[in-house]
Design a protein around this nucleic acid. Structure first.
Lengths: 222, 222
DNA sequence: ATTATCTATAGATCTATAGATAATGC
DNA sequence: ATTATCTATAGATCTATAGATAATGC
């Protein structure tokens, strides 16, 4: 209440700007993850932040642009991290990479990032999961994440020489499905299991997923 | 061109009604599968059918109701078919059901239904996939499909005695993810594989999925 | 002097309803 | 006489912009 320190509540313009932008992105990320591009109005976003709708336009011009900004803010971080993990694994494994090893590098790295990144990263994960199977978002996702996926496929091919290429792709199709369904955190498993499992228990998924999927790849070989 | 048969273009009111309703549902099913509840306007639906928007209101009152009607039209058919297949399998397998057997009953039955049902059934599959991970749709799906899923879980438990229950549920989490991602037909695998695999090639999925997933379940046992 | 934020508002679109018109049904 | 379909329109909502106000920055 006392005004001893004059700069107490002052923020520089750069700080104000940065803070508003982050808050808008956080709110949009959350809302888009729940309701998709068309299920969110700019008014919803502004209301969640506690600002006026026009400020969203001021910083992001239009809705499509805001949507893409939400995607772009964290895309490179996850993409780069997974790429590094895959390269690291490939160099560590030398001449004999395994399916399970490659999947651990690909999946665990990502699950850790979201889980350890806290609420906002969890929201981004859900955003990606939701967006990945919409026409608006698929292209965006493809463009950004194709290199990492192709890197994974490359290692899988080395781990499984003489394995039909189609099977590698179908296997990846199952893997990415399971990952996206995990990131979506729909709450389905909580209800089904009567509360024994939890949608946001990424460590539980991490413990099982690479092993489960690797065994699946092996089974197709016969 | 000649008017020998007087009743040529005549339809009874009941027929007209039924036809309009079916056409509206078909159009809505397709559009909702692509763009979700909020991404479709009733005008879009009417335009696709070639009728006036108000006719959609006439038959379906409001948008939410149309959405639920799209879901309901085919829900029981897929649900009943899978339930029968699971019951049939359970009685055939007697004392020793297997994971792969249960999954074949659960998955193949559904994939066949969509694939053999033609374009409209394929659209319904995509509709379900899209809807299953939205707040609007999840509840609808759960309510309708829980019995089938719990039946599958029941057989899996019998096939895997002494297996931790959590692992069964996480395994199912992976299975349903893969199924939904298949039904969505995003075209992702087509691009990734350079045209070698196709999103709408359900027979290719059917050939691999139960085997792949069953091996995954087995691998968690260790 | 510049930038962040808000007020006011135009224009578009969307849902939904009331009421008119044009068919089929006894 | 009833039902399918269309016309006209009200009311709500949403996007986006122009311009005013209130801060920070030299």
């Amino acid at each position: 209440m006392s005004s001893t320190t004059p700069k107490r509540t002052q923020r520089s313009k750069a700080e104000q700007r940065a803070e508003s932008i982050e808050q808008i992105l956080d709110a949009a990320e959350y809302l888009f993850s729940k309701n998709g591009l068309y299920g969110v109005t700019l008014k919803d976003v502004a209301k969640r932040v506690g600002i006026h709708t026009t400020l969203v336009h001021y910083y992001f011009q239009d809705k499509q642009n805001l949507f893409e900004a939400v995607f772009a803010r964290r895309a490179n971080i996850t993409s780069d991290r997974r790429m590094e993990a895959l390269e690291q694994y490939e160099s560590d494994a030398g001449e004999s990479p395994t399916v399970e090893g490659a999947l651990h590098a690909f999946l665990d790295t990502d699950l850790d990032l979201y889980y350890e990144g806290g609420e906002n990263w969890m929201n981004y994960a859900a955003f990606c999961a939701r967006v990945s199977n919409t026409p608006e978002g698929a292209e965006l996702m493809d463009k950004h994440f194709d290199p990492v996926v192709l890197k994974l496929v490359h290692i899988l091919k080395r781990a499984l020489p003489n394995y039909p290429e189609e099977d590698i792709f179908w296997g990846y199709h199952f893997v990415t499905a399971a990952l996206m369904n995990t990131l979506a955190r729909t709450g389905r498993i909580d209800k089904l299991s009567g509360g024994m499992c939890h949608s946001d228990d990424f460590p539980a998924v991490k413990k099982r997923m690479a092993k489960f999927m690797a065994a699946g790849f092996m089974a197709l070989e016969n």
